[in-house]
Amino acid sequence: MQPFTKLHGVACPLALASVDTDQLIPARFMVRSRSDGYGGYLLHDLRFAADGEKNGAFVLDLPRYAGAKVLVAAGSFGTGSSREAAVYALWDYGIRCVIASSFGDIFTSNATKNGLLAAVVAEPALTVLLGHLAAADSPALGVDLAQQVITSGSLSVGFEVDPARRLQLLNGWDDIDLTLRYSAEIEAYKGALLARQPWRLLHA
């Protein structure tokens, strides 16, 4: 996995109080193969009309936010369905960090495992950040994961992230490689199950 250390890029304010994963990628696109890229499906039904034409008015599609690497949401983000495709859509679009007041638990986990930072910024700092981006000539943010700080010019805002997830992102650790180091412990656990609770292994 690609480590996440520091980032500087265009940041788009998303003035939506609640962004569920059904909005991030509507279910009908998830039959598609990832190799084609999921970026075009990001927030699809908010960006495109029923005939597939881009309505152009959605904030992410405004020229000033072209090439955005950071999304700042006005409330909760990533609630609902466990679909990791929501993270794929963000990643393939180019988003590397989402800032919100709260995240769905499964979303945060999915994001971390793909190297995308879900940074929690509480109010009133979140409103300040949103206002700053909307007013800025060139809306951009710096995100420093080691220091847990978001900066833009003279503005500096701290953010929260689970310590274990922070370490995983900073190092780009892959869970599976890590887990395979515990193979002996896993085998021992399974052995004890077989002896004492065989029904848990569907024996008997």
Partner: peptide, 19 residues
């Protein structure tokens, strides 16, 4: 519920990291 990366992890190890 878990995401696809966690599904892959369970498939390969029958375990999952949780806090």
């Amino acid at each position: 519920g878990i995401g696809a990366s966690e599904v892959a992890h369970v498939l390969m190890t029958q375990t999952l990291w949780q806090r």
